[in-house]
Computed example of a mutant assay.
Amino acid sequence: MPAELFFTLGALHLVMLASPGPDFALMLRTCHDRVLALGAALGIALAILLHSLLSLTGISLLVASAPWLFNAIKLAGALYLGWLAWGALQAVRAGAGSSQHSSRRGQGSLGQGLRMGLATNLLNPKALVYFMGLLAAMVSPQVGMGSRALLAAELCLLSLLWFGVLALCLSTPRAQALLARSQRAVNAVTALLFGLVSIAILLELAGGLASMAG
C-alpha cells in the first residue's frame, strides 16, 4: 500500500473529525461524566471502524443501492438524532445550571456511553455516505484486503484518539466549570447540531420519496 494513501486518508479523516457534527455534539452532552464520555468516544470509533469495513468491502454500496433499506436507515437516524435534539432542547428550556450539571456527574457508565456513541454514528446516514464516497474515491480495486483492513484500523484509531482526548479535556474540573457557566448555550449548540442533521435527513428523505412518486 502506498504511504501517500495512508497519510492522505488519515489527514482527510482528521479534518472530518474536527468538523462540528452529531459526534461532537454527543461529546458535549456526555462530558459531565468522564467514564460516560470515554465510552461514547469508544462507541464512535467502533462505529467508524464498522463504516470503514462496510465501505471497503462494498457492503455499504449494496445497502445504498437498496432504496427501501437505505430509506429505513435514514428514517431511523433522523428520528434518533431528533430525539437527542429534543432532549438537549428540553435542557435549554429547563435552564440547566451548574448544580444540575454537577449532580449528573458519576451517573453514567462505559457501556451506556458505548451504546450512545455507536447509535449516534451508525444511525447517521451522512456518515455512511461519507465513508462510502471517501473510500471509493481514494482506495482503488488494486489495494488488497490486508491494506484495506489497515486503512480501516487507521481511521478507527484516529477517531478513538481524537474523541478520547476530547473526552478527557472536556471532563477536567476547569472545563466543567466553564461549561457549567454556559450550560444553556452548550445545550443550545448540541440541540442545533442534532436538529439540523435530523431535519436535513428528513428533507432529503422526503425529496427522494416525492421524486419516486412522481
Rank of each mutant, 00 (worst) to 15 (best):
G87V: 02
G87Y: 03
G87R: 06
G87L: 06
A88H: 07
A88W: 05
L89Y: 14
L89T: 11
L89P: 02
Q90F: 10
Q90K: 15
Q90P: 03
Q90A: 15
Q90E: 15
A91I: 02
A91C: 01
A91Y: 04
A91T: 05
V92C: 09
V92G: 01
V92Q: 11
V92T: 10
R93D: 10
R93S: 12
R93T: 07
A94R: 15
A94E: 13
A94I: 07
A94H: 10
G95W: 13
G95H: 14
A96L: 15
A96P: 02
A96M: 14
A96V: 15
A96E: 15
A96I: 15
G97F: 11
G97C: 10
G97S: 13
G97V: 11
G97R: 14
G97D: 15
S98K: 14
S98D: 15
S98F: 11
S98G: 09
S99W: 13
S99K: 13
S99I: 10
S99Q: 13
S99C: 03
Q100V: 04
Q100Y: 03
Q100G: 09
Q100S: 08
H101F: 15
H101C: 01
H101R: 12
S102Q: 14
S102C: 04
S103Q: 13
R104F: 08
R104M: 10
R104V: 07
R104E: 13
R105L: 04
G106Q: 06
G106W: 13
G106A: 02
G106F: 07
Q107Y: 00
Q107I: 04
G108Q: 10
G108C: 05
S109R: 09
S109P: 00
S109L: 04
S109A: 03
L110N: 02
L110E: 05
G111C: 00
G111L: 10
Q112L: 14
Q112C: 07
Q112K: 14
Q112R: 15
Q112I: 10
G113V: 05
G113Y: 01
G113Q: 02
G113F: 05
L114S: 11
R115C: 08
R115P: 00
M116V: 01
M116Y: 07
M116I: 03
M116R: 04
G117Y: 13
G117P: 09
G117D: 12
L118R: 09
L118G: 06
L118V: 10
A119F: 02
A119G: 02
A119N: 02
A119W: 01
T120I: 07
T120F: 03
N121A: 08
N121G: 00
L122G: 01
L122W: 05
L122S: 05
L122Y: 02
L122Q: 05
L122V: 08
L123E: 13
L123I: 06
N124A: 03
N124I: 07
N124V: 04
N124S: 03
P125E: 00
P125W: 04
P125T: 03
K126N: 09
K126P: 00
K126E: 09
A127T: 14
A127K: 08
A127Y: 04
A127Q: 14
A127F: 03
A127E: 14
L128I: 00
L128P: 00
L128F: 01
L128Y: 00
